[in-house]
Design a protein around this nucleic acid. Sequence first.
DNA 1: ACCTGAACACCGTTCAAGT
DNA 2: ACCTGAACACCGTTCAAGT
Lengths: 198, 198
Amino acid sequence: MADGTTTPGQRADAQRNRERLLDAARQVVAEEGTQASLRDVARRAGVGLGTLYRHFPTRDDLLEALLRVRFDELASLADALLDDDDPAERSLAAWLGAFTVGASAARGLPASLMATLGDPDSALHASCLSMREAAGRLLRAAQDTGRIRPDVDGTDLFALVNALGWITDQAPSIAARREHLLTLVMDGLAGPGTGQAR
Amino acid sequence: MADGTTTPGQRADAQRNRERLLDAARQVVAEEGTQASLRDVARRAGVGLGTLYRHFPTRDDLLEALLRVRFDELASLADALLDDDDPAERSLAAWLGAFTVGASAARGLPASLMATLGDPDSALHASCLSMREAAGRLLRAAQDTGRIRPDVDGTDLFALVNALGWITDQAPSIAARREHLLTLVMDGLAGPGTGQAR
DNA sequence: ACCTGAACACCGTTCAAGT
DNA sequence: ACCTGAACACCGTTCAAGT
């Protein structure tokens, strides 16, 4: 059972460098987003640039190490919501809310997530895909109740919620309306209305 | 009446260089998106890098020269739709469709549009703002009929449609579902449904 | 094994020097 | 007036050289 925080393979300064890199990356990504300068990460970690590449051959490898925990949490949240007693469309809304909050943890994250889904070789691919699938199960449960339109799938849903996460990052005035825009999209997921607004 | 295609101020090779730059920029932006390398543009135009900066001090100045015509067309389309005999919400849907098609003309365009709205000094600011305002008038007309929810404004609408344009650029599989996602958002704009999907 | 930093091929932006 | 390209300060990525 690897716990993810230590890699007991070969040790020494390597283990310490890895942790320094992750600490630095956490800071830099929080400040600059997923497109942050890798040189900056190495610099802030007090480590040679080659060392960063040795530990994380790819930007996505680094992001994966930073983000997998959150992704897994979101996936299990979806499964937990699936089992609770709330109406399915409320569970779905709750999950989407949690996701959009997490998506704005780092600028550029929605773009990274979408790119990762299209690249099976990305280190982020697997966890991102399983997160989307967990959301898909929630969606299907809500569709079974007949209160969510049947002509959307998990891909549509994930696309929409990432689009929302993206737009929310483009301007503070829009970030302030995140909840509002989310309910609007949720209403769209519910299907055509009566035609009477409000 | 400046027609935008010629700048009769001082001429000579300057005028020709300007046109070469625009031609090159059209190509490069079409291929690489709004974040295309400016060096590449100068190179393809067969012009020194400094010449590009002299004609277009800013990336947005260059984009403005490329895109203003389309923006203006979209703005007048909105006004034309406002005056036709179609139901207001159909006019709104038609405009949103036209916008999203135009928005996928160049990768990165939705991001440029959103950035531009927040920066009054951007060369794109004015035309982008007036486009949003034209859309806002369409929106209000549709709201007056009572078939579009009253608690959205032009900023929300523009944000949503740009979010759609962005997500559409992230994966071909999603681009294929653009119409579908647009109707979904339109349904959201119509307000809460009956609760019965479909 | 692991670390380091120079090296390479790119950027955007500025500006002295030319015509 | 206008054009040019070197110069500067950055990138990402690789890899020879060190321990």
